[in-house]
Design a binder for these strands. Structure first.
Lengths: 115, 115
DNA sequence: TTAATATATGAATACTTATTCATATATTGA
DNA sequence: TCAATATATGAATAAGTATTCATATATTAA
């Protein structure tokens, strides 16, 4: 190994090792991002920006089958990206917190795309 | 379909449909999140928070084989999460822009985890 | 130009995950 | 209690992807 900034990079590598988050934290972050990294699930999140909705209307908004949407909702909920409450026969879903919208908007500004 | 907020949810569904980003934009956002949703790649990003580093030192910081790290770097670069420049025999990598750190920090505050 | 070093990459395999289909559960109204 | 409606879920298949291994490319020093 031999580069102009060898010393500098080595220090950065050492610091990186010391400050590396615990494996468990990394896996949680990874799981959270993974859950918002599928087009079908992103559509659900973009839909829920308009306000809470029950499954029937989410299906209406994003397309696909009820079963597929339901599976995706579960993944989003397990990862605390969305939350739900029962309202009679319906389950009403909404975004878990403001971080979700914030992170979507950051991604879009990073990519220069309108949302 | 029949729920207390039927009218309200229906309006949200209509609005969601109208404001749904284009398929192409959704796929770009999805690809960007996908690229930061694997533990091995997240480690690289956390490492690069300490500053730019060449591949040798990234491997040192995150573990794994040179080949695996190199494949992961390519995915991150293709998705504009990191950038690179050549420095003699070395390729020096760094985070593409401040959005990357910001999105990582948002995720962590969402999950209440230290980074 | 050759050897050594740093990094990248194609192909194969193993693993992960999305979707579908069939069916189960839960709530409501009759 | 029964039928209808809304939602969830297990299993199977299909599609996607991480890692490994072998090797290629690029740069430097001799």
């Amino acid at each position: 190994m031999n580069c102009d900034h060898e010393q500098l990079h080595h220090l950065a590598a050492q610091a990186a090792k010391e400050n590396m988050p615990a494996e468990e934290a990394i896996e949680r972050v990874a799981a959270a991002f993974k859950s918002i990294s599928e087009p079908s699930r992103l559509k659900i999140l973009f839909a829920l920006r308009q306000g809470e909705m029950c499954v029937f209307h989410i299906v209406e908004a994003v397309g696909g089958t009820q079963s597929a949407v339901s599976h995706q909702l579960r993944i989003l909920k397990d990862n605390h990206i969305i939350k739900s409450r029962r309202d009679g026969q319906n389950i009403v879903y909404s975004l878990a917190d403001e971080h979700v919208v914030a992170v979507l908007e950051l991604a879009c500004s990073h990519l220069n795309c309108k949302i």
